[in-house]
């Protein structure tokens, strides 16, 4: 360890390092989740799981129009929570925390899935209210995370039915993400994660049609990192100013290296999620990023993350 302690604590759950596998990446089967755990991730978020099995959208479901610009429209395929419980059982022996991500169309479904995970022994949940393309095609209907009332209704219902901590995953596709962080925390969110993918679209000029099978999708990857940093900072500043109760923030979006992790921690994030970068460094992503973070801390003489967390935020308050 070289005298450097990378551990963090999210709602009473200890992580050996702040790099969490983001939801939807490698997250559906136990075998590959185990590989992600062995590759050094501090925690694993599962694919978002719903009540019934979902087949997701037609392909193409993942494209990279320009380097670092990743677009996806999976449509939340998953086997449904009953089947997914079997995958979780397979993971009982790994000593990396697993964070089930839950999805639903209405509060009844969120309650059903979250209760099932609590009953199965999960210690924490991520509530995904922010997938920008879970329904088919161009609906024009706001998703839950774009509507404060719907957001409140879901979080209230989940908090009433489970006693384990919940992380609410926020959407960047709103005018003021702070408003949504505030509603979430007021309804009892124990932590927030940000950001989910950014609404996006790609067109093929020869075929004269959208490329993604679902037409519209969400952007992720290195191209969204600076946007995600701004969103995380906005929430962290509101917490510093006591406009919102302080809860841990998990920063997600385009993170690839140790320096990227540091950037989010410097903006006040408790931990970070890593997803699309696995395209570039594959399963070495976690190992590389974590050793990069350690090197950076060593260079700066830091022994633990709290030695520098929020330092960049100070400039903006």
């Amino acid at each position: 360890m070289g005298g450097i302690d990378l551990s963090i604590n999210i709602c009473g759950i200890k992580l050996k390092n702040p790099a969490i596998l983001a939801s939807g990446i490698l997250g559906c089967t136990s075998g590959i989740l185990r590989m992600a755990a062995e590759s050094g991730a501090g925690a694993l978020t599962t694919k978002s799981i719903s009540v019934e099995e979902r087949h997701g959208h037609r392909g193409p479901i993942l494209i990279e129009p320009m380097h670092g610009v990743v677009l996806n429209a999976f449509g939340l395929p998953n086997p449904g929570y009953r089947a997914f419980m079997e995958e979780l059982k397979e993971l009982e022996d790994i000593n990396v925390p697993v964070i089930p991500s839950i999805a639903g169309r209405n509060y009844e479904e969120f309650v059903e899935v979250s209760s099932a995970f609590e009953d199965a022994g999960s210690k924490i949940l991520e509530v995904n209210i922010s997938c920008p393309h879970s329904e088919k095609g161009y609906g024009g209907v706001p998703i839950i995370a774009q509507d404060t009332e719907k957001t409140a209704a879901i979080i209230d219902a989940v908090k009433e039915s489970v006693s384990i901590p919940i992380i609410v995953k926020l959407s960047p596709n709103v005018t003021d993400i702070v408003e949504f962080a505030k509603v979430s925390v007021e309804c009892g969110a124990d932590a927030v994660s940000a950001i989910n993918t950014i609404e996006a679209l790609e067109v093929d000029p020869i075929l004269e049609r959208p490329v993604l099978g679902n037409m519209i999708g969400g952007q992720s990857g290195p191209s969204i990192r600076c946007i995600a940093q701004r969103k995380v900072a906005d929430i962290a500043i509101a917490m510093k100013r006591k406009e919102i109760k302080k809860v841990p923030i998990i920063g997600i979006g385009g993170i690839r290296s140790g320096e990227d992790i540091a950037r989010f921690l410097l903006l006040g994030a408790e931990g970070v999620g890593i997803g699309s970068s696995i395209l570039y460094d594959d399963l070495d992503t976690f190992d590389k990023a974590i050793s990069g973070l350690k090197d950076l801390m060593r260079e700066k003489g830091y022994k633990k993350i709290s030695d520098f967390r929020s330092n960049a935020l100070e400039w903006m308050i």
Partner: peptide, 20 residues
């Protein structure tokens, strides 16, 4: 096979992705 590039993990057999 869904993504074809090893990101989503849907094609896993044991710990390996058939696509990548």
């Amino acid at each position: 096979i869904r993504c074809g590039v090893g990101l989503c993990g849907f094609c896993a057999i044991d710990g390996c992705r058939v696509c990548k």
